[in-house]
Amino acid sequence: MLSNIPLSLRYATALAVIAAVALPFLTDNMFIVNLAVLMLIAIIFASAWNLLACSGQGSLGHAAFFGIGAYASTLVAVSLGITPFITIFIGAGVAAVIGILIGLTCVRLKEWFLAMVTFGFAIIVQTLVVSVLAPMTGGWDGIPSPRLVSPAIPGYQLIEYYAILLITIATIIAIWYIMRSKAGLAFLAIRENETEARAAGIDPVRYRLLAFAISAFIAGIAGALQIHHIGYITPELFGVDNSFWPITYVILGGLGTIAGPIIGTVALTVIWEGLKETGMTFARYVIIGIILILTIIFLPKGLVSLPERLVEWMARKKRKMETHPLTGK
């Protein structure tokens, strides 16, 4: 299966993995490592959103699954005393089940309707967490969450970094497999044309639900990881910003590709932190907004398509240069 990947891509992947593994050796600055941890979590989250978008379903409320995974994992870990390494998957499982429920209400809906339902769902979940579920969740006050790796263990930050890196790589490989499988092809077929997909014997409802479940599961993992990394959980997790970030990452990197969320997250994190260093406040968001819009208009396939676009552009320029003396213009 590896053989059908282009050589250059294989080198790039290997390079990325080596860079990620070597990072803590290159710097003893824990801020960089901490930033990298948050970035890895964002990559998982963005990949989850991307997977759902691959099946033609653009969610505006993925923070709901992120938060549900985080809350479920925390509550299980606290009440049963299980290590977060296990509970993140339990939390993700809960997120997946709820993802299916939301998916059920969405399967018949068109793009905007679906966006609205998911957006509203995040708000409803937040309201439930701070009202009806408050005795369990601590309401707005939030509750402490056990750390993924206890700070009592020496070098815990690096163990945590490598653990999250491993989970990130595993997630990406899993998504890669899914997208190559029959299910992945079905997602793409549904996104391109639902009627044709149906004619080809694909059951759109089943596959859309599957996409919802997998996406919610992965988003739940990301949420649980982030909360076990931070050590405290509050309902702010369900905020609108948290739903918008993964979208921004994916659009910048390249929608519908495996590398898109990764490249987009890394690029945007670097831009974001760099702008912050210059002391910018609101201007940061304005710049991110402009980058997003320019990407959508001029680079609709995201940064991953930049190399081929450059090659195309160079070729066109070259051709022009060649024709220039002939036409005499």
Binding site: A53, E111, F282, L292
Partner: peptide, 17 residues
Amino acid sequence: KLNEIFLSIGLIYIFQN
């Protein structure tokens, strides 16, 4: 249609800030 939704997000960032 998804592109319009994403574009709106960019506009929200720009206008609010």
